[in-house]
Design a binder for these strands. Sequence first.
DNA 1: GATGTCTTACTCGGATAGCCGGTGTCCGAGTATGGGCGG
DNA 2: CCGCCCATACTCGGACACCGGCTATCCGAGTAAGACATC
Lengths: 160, 160
Amino acid sequence: MRMGEGVEWGLHCCLTLAWLGDDRPVPTARLATWFDLPPAYLAKRLQALVRAGVLASTPGARGGFSLGRPPERITLMDVVTAIEGTDDAFRCTEIRQRGEGGGGALAREFQRPCGVATAMRRAELAWRRELAGQTVADLMAAAPPGAADRTRRTYARMTG
Amino acid sequence: MRMGEGVEWGLHCCLTLAWLGDDRPVPTARLATWFDLPPAYLAKRLQALVRAGVLASTPGARGGFSLGRPPERITLMDVVTAIEGTDDAFRCTEIRQRGEGGGGALAREFQRPCGVATAMRRAELAWRRELAGQTVADLMAAAPPGAADRTRRTYARMTG
DNA sequence: GATGTCTTACTCGGATAGCCGGTGTCCGAGTATGGGCGG
DNA sequence: CCGCCCATACTCGGACACCGGCTATCCGAGTAAGACATC
């Protein structure tokens, strides 16, 4: 079970955009060179974040991406679901009903949800709850002091 | 992010073996027809559970698979890690160090773990803790009454 | 009847192929900025 | 000086190729139980 790289990209991009503030949008190419990522593929992931409302995109010249909400209202769950989708990692295919093992059971029992799926879902809910409890602002607060200044300085040197 | 089907298979197989008790091992082919699964591929997953000590395999005639431990000591975490591996779903590739964005930071900062990775890891630990807190015995207790008897009867009719 | 051997049934492990989704790239369409041109 | 038009820069969305991992299958080797033959 592996999560796509896009989640790491998206989180770091959100964090960087939060450091810079949204005085000016940041184009895809700049974020790509910032983290040394393939520009076209990164753009696909950022567009997914826009569709979820996490980021906002301003088209045209001097355009680019900026935060769609203040950092306190962007949870890690928002970023993960925007990029990875809303499906659970564990998907119950109802194998309990298939084959000869399922033939012996009454149809009434299958109206109740599968116990295995319920147990797995409980664990995923704990995961989601933890992700929903942390925001981009929390990431900023946990970063070492001076990170905001250094980010802005480095960005100014790049764009200058 | 999707989890392999093998986890669902393994959990249901463990549950079925727990219902039947370990008076006699169950061969792969019987479990495959029980759930209507491809026998050779199912065998691969069961072998992974054997390597983890969750199941025990008895070779030779009248051989098959049985539980390696009592159901109270088999957690869902054991089954998941045996089949899916021990790697975290989120893997930090340290993109914070790459590109021009990382160039401006001091090398000393990178000795501290990445804040994004730490946050994601916290959520995965909650997931793992929840999985480790539920055992196969708990699944048996949560099942509707009479499931054990029906499983044994259906199995006896199959093998008879 | 006891012992050794043979057949059978099953697991084990590796090799191999197909397939799906994530990864990565490219191109055309749409849009806003800024400069240039004409009135 | 004002207004219109165009070039530019960027996003958006889709189409396409590539690759790794999951899915799936097959086969030979090893092992234990039961049947059989032999003494």
